[in-house]
Design a protein around this nucleic acid. Structure first.
Lengths: 220, 220
DNA sequence: GCCATAGGGATTGCATACAATATCCAGATT
DNA sequence: AATCTGGATATTGTATGCAATCCCTATGGC
């Protein structure tokens, strides 16, 4: 059961990936007709997919003018990352006391998977997914599903900019080191220091993105 | 401009109100055909409205079985209200230093409006809206639109239960008193005490709702 | 030269109609 | 008696086509 996926969901998933991957620059118009031909479906599932993406904050509808990819201001990016700090330290604080050996192993295995992928020189595109998977592995034992869902929303909404930064900078190695430190501190059960590291981990990423964005704004 | 409202939006707004108002109990099936006849539109806008409500967490789609109103567990309610405390004290903390005389007047006028409505014995249904409007008035000067949007989501998602409590108890008067205290403390610029009051204000509501829910679960 | 304004064209928003899927219940089987 | 099977039925999911709305440009007035 539940293995059925509507065309609308398929289009939404693919389109989300394309937007996050930077195929559409901020403010691009997404015409229903063109997308429908692209995916060889009618405009109905395309429209529903766009509605879904709208609710995720990736596109905006302008009545009778269509959907446009959203463009976040530097201020909005900073705000979203400040929210991430707030919510993610919150769940982490609740998760650490519940971390089992299995949880820690799972998180560690994600890091190993990533290393393997890196060594084999595979694409950088889905680092973002690995990154989120690792964070999620640390947060899941919090037993706070609603909060995790909101954190997921925040990540989706800012996802395009996270990937942008990764293209322009070499922040991944630094993030990887920090991930290992996070895991080690969590293993020791040192709540305060883990959360503090997480805070700088997220804030550094935000500053990196802000710098990239401001540079690209100046050049435009 | 932007004064145009699609049928889908109209249906979504009305249906949201009906769900929050308790017309549909948790877990009710919402058949597209019936709703379409109800609103004298085709199933397309109904479907889009249901998708919107799904993204707001008010309904759930079961593939080929239709949409059902969601039912929140007591744990989920508690979690949502804990999140509200976290996010709302956060924005309030940022808003208080920015509060202008006009902002305070605006908040005060909302309280007066509510009093007038109460005295004239009008319906209690939209107290929830007044409540949110007052809170929003205090938070808006924070200049944190993304955070405010998330707070709005949390309120929508738990809205049905907030109204449930108001029917069964007489919490409104207490809340009103606290609103005036909040306004006064904010006027004085006492950030810590205002946030502390806000915290208990929200937590008390959560406990009231949890009590009502648990009672109704036992009787069921 | 600048602003208001009407008509053409492009695109969305929606209604109708059809296809696809899950559920339900009767009947057979063990 | 309980479980499994299969077809009828109800309901969703999608395609097609049309109507409504907005943008754009050209034209006229000041």
């Amino acid at each position: 059961m539940a293995t059925f996926k509507t065309r609308a969901q398929y289009v939404a998933d693919d389109l989300r990936e394309r937007i996050l991957g930077g195929e559409f620059k901020g403010g691009s118009q997404l015409r229903q007709d063109a997308l429908a031909k692209d995916y060889e479906v009618s405009r109905i599932p395309v429209r529903e997919a766009l509605l879904t993406l709208e609710s995720e904050g990736l596109v905006e509808f302008h009545a009778h003018r269509g959907a446009f990819t959203t463009e976040l201001s530097v201020a909005a990016i900073r705000e979203l990352f400040d929210l991430r700090v707030l919510l993610e330290t919150y769940v982490l604080r609740h998760a650490i006391p519940n971390l089992t050996a299995a949880d820690l192993d799972h998180a560690a295995s994600i890091l190993r998977q990533y290393d393997a992928a890196l060594d084999s020189g595979s694409q950088i595109d889905n680092w973002s997914d690995y990154n989120f998977a690792f964070h999620h592995a640390l947060y899941a034992p919090s037993g706070l599903p609603e909060t995790l869902a909101m954190i997921g929303q925040l990540n989706t909404k800012s996802g395009r900019y996270i990937r942008m930064q990764l293209v322009y900078t070499r922040e991944i190695e630094k993030a990887e080191v920090e991930h290992r430190q996070l895991l080690e501190l969590a293993r020791q059960g040192d709540v305060d220091r883990t959360c503090q590291l997480l805070e700088t981990h997220i804030k550094d990423a935000a500053e990196g993105i802000a710098a990239v964005l401001e540079k690209s704004l100046r050049s435009a």
